[in-house]
Design a protein around this nucleic acid. Structure first.
Lengths: 329, 329
DNA sequence: CAGCTCGATGTTTACGTAAACACTCGCGGC
DNA sequence: GCCGCGAGTGTTTACGTAAACATCGAGCTG
């Protein structure tokens, strides 16, 4: 900066003013400074800037994996929303499985150059990973049960699951089987709870659940089980990937979807409409979740108040061709 | 830091030494300082640290979208590789479509707090977006043709496509149709070129290509066209999502895969093995690409030399059940 | 036991920026 | 014509850290 000032024949303060677009610099001087900046390839040092300003204009996103559609789509929305507000996004991946060596990665987290943090993972997993969120940092949690500790933005899992199961019940199915997500996921838990609630409210028997791990492969394995059960006429899968596995298993075992058996998914991933058959599923508005997360943290940062409310983003059922009335009807 | 020093009864320099794990601090003093840090909730200021050190220990990743599997998987690998090296990742999304207002977002890019940049997008699109990478910053480009300007790490697209098409030719198909990716993608272009080369080398006719946009939906539309052509017995799709769309279109039109028509994809996404039927596809090692990108930038940063070589990551064909000999055989 | 070395700690300084304040004009009002 | 004001610019200072250098004392050597 000093070099630029010297070359332009002004003080460094004036360079600073130009670089920040402040008013109070006469046009001719401004041009001279800009020319000098260009000539010297001047690039403001954001470290110094952050030091001075006391803020980084950066949000940290803690996530466990990029392998689920939901996380990725939410992250994408967060990134764009943050960019609109002039904030950058720093990724903080968390490798829970191996407790060893992980600790080192996290101590850094505390000293990370961020003004706020958005957590896209089950908070209790965070605890398990012995990560402690640094104090005095604003946090918003997406897609999880954060207890009373943090502000939460989440899809209305219960509503979505209810829509899905009710749809199947309304079609005339006696009962609905459920392919659940992993037991340690609150999102999966809430979908399961809602599924059970709908069946109970409708006075139907509640069959045992089958559990998967969100992957298509686990859906396939579950499908092999369910295909062997002739009484099974409807399945509510906790996500679309597992539903894909179900579809393959049913196809391979001659169980026609939807004639013999109906399948509903959850998420409405882009590919769902091109499954065979196109999948009826619950649409989650990940973009909205991401946007609200950013809004939430920024608001907390600006007010310097940690809030704790839960914001629910509504879902909607997208009916395609994988559901129909049961064969007996 | 000064507060901590006062509370522990030492100088701020000693606090600094403790906080950095430097040697030369007697154990008892160290404990006293640590206790003080804890009591005051001290958190080192990374802006000041970066200012002093002249580096941010952060890499920027420029990408256009998180909606393609490849980008996401590469990003994931980059993130983990960077974490291992003690570097954080800052996301710099680029919204090309709207030229308006975008500019503002990019000027920031030049002053971003990063030591190096990894670009996961077609470089010529970067140009089109009037983004200029700041000078004196090390850059590695993934998955693109960067001309002579940058160091490039890419999957060996040609080899992969060759494997796919050769596989179909070897099965006895007279020729192979090609569902290409968008025309402005170099990756798509290279896959198309390799497809044509194999056919020509084998002395087969080169049918016209059908073009999609990477989405399953575009694959479906292409599939409707191809299903109507009775001579079409084999299709090489430029990615798995489009292959999914093909499968649906063929299924809906009574064209059995693989008995009537063979389909090969590209990418080997996790879901590909649960398509109906499980998809034969070209496996890309995104993780390896990501890892090498990080290695590349870090090396450039450490040597302060911009390199320009291209590193190719090999592919392999994964044969599943969507390919077979043509019906006439 | 003087002189020296070395380990532990303190003091000074600089990193690049921008806020706060100081200064210098030219111009309008009285 | 003098005063005051405000626009344009310069000067000083502080942000939090860590390298470089300074200091101090204990232990060792000759």
């Amino acid at each position: 900066m000093a070099d630029v000032a010297r070359l332009a024949g002004v003080s460094s303060q004036t360079v600073s003013r130009v670089s920040n677009g402040s008013t109070g610099v006469v046009e001719e001087t401004r041009q001279r400074v800009l020319a000098a900046m260009k000539e010297l390839g001047y690039r403001p040092n954001s470290a110094a800037r952050a030091l001075k300003a006391g803020e980084f204009r950066t949000l940290g996103v803690i996530l466990f994996t990029l392998s689920t559609t939901g996380n990725v789509r939410t992250l994408e929305a967060i990134t764009h929303a943050a960019a609109r507000e002039g904030y950058a996004i720093t990724l903080m991946p968390v490798a829970v499985p191996t407790q060893t060596g992980v600790h080192g990665a996290f101590t850094r987290l505390g000293e990370l150059a961020v003004d706020g943090i958005i957590v896209i993972m089950e908070v209790h997993l965070l605890d398990a990973a012995t990560i402690s969120l640094p104090p005095h940092i604003q946090v918003v949690v997406a897609d999880s049960d954060a207890g009373q500790r943090y502000s939460v933005v989440d899809t209305d899992q219960s509503e979505g699951a209810r829509l899905a199961v009710q749809h199947l019940v309304d079609l005339g199915h006696d009962t609905v089987r459920h392919l659940a997500g992993p037991a340690d996921s609150f999102a999966a838990q809430r979908r399961t709870d809602a599924w059970r609630a709908v069946l109970e409210d409708a006075g139907r028997t509640v069959p045992p659940i089958v559990r998967g791990d969100w992957s298509a492969e686990s859906g396939y394995r579950a499908g092999l089980l369910l295909a062997a059960d002739p009484d099974c006429t409807a399945v509510f899968a906790a996500n679309d990937q597992m539903a894909l596995g179900l579809l393959r298993a049913f196809h391979e075992h001659g169980r026609r979807v939807p004639q013999d058996i109906s399948v509903v998914g959850f998420d409405d991933i882009a590919e769902a409409r091109d499954f065979i058959p196109p999948l009826t599923t619950v649409h989650q508005d990940f973009a909205d979740v991401g946007r609200r997360c950013v809004e939430g943290v920024l608001q907390q940062i600006r007010n310097q108040t940690a809030e704790q409310g839960t914001t629910l983003v509504p879902t909607r059922l997208v009916v395609r061709e994988s559901t129909a009335a049961p064969p007996s009807c």
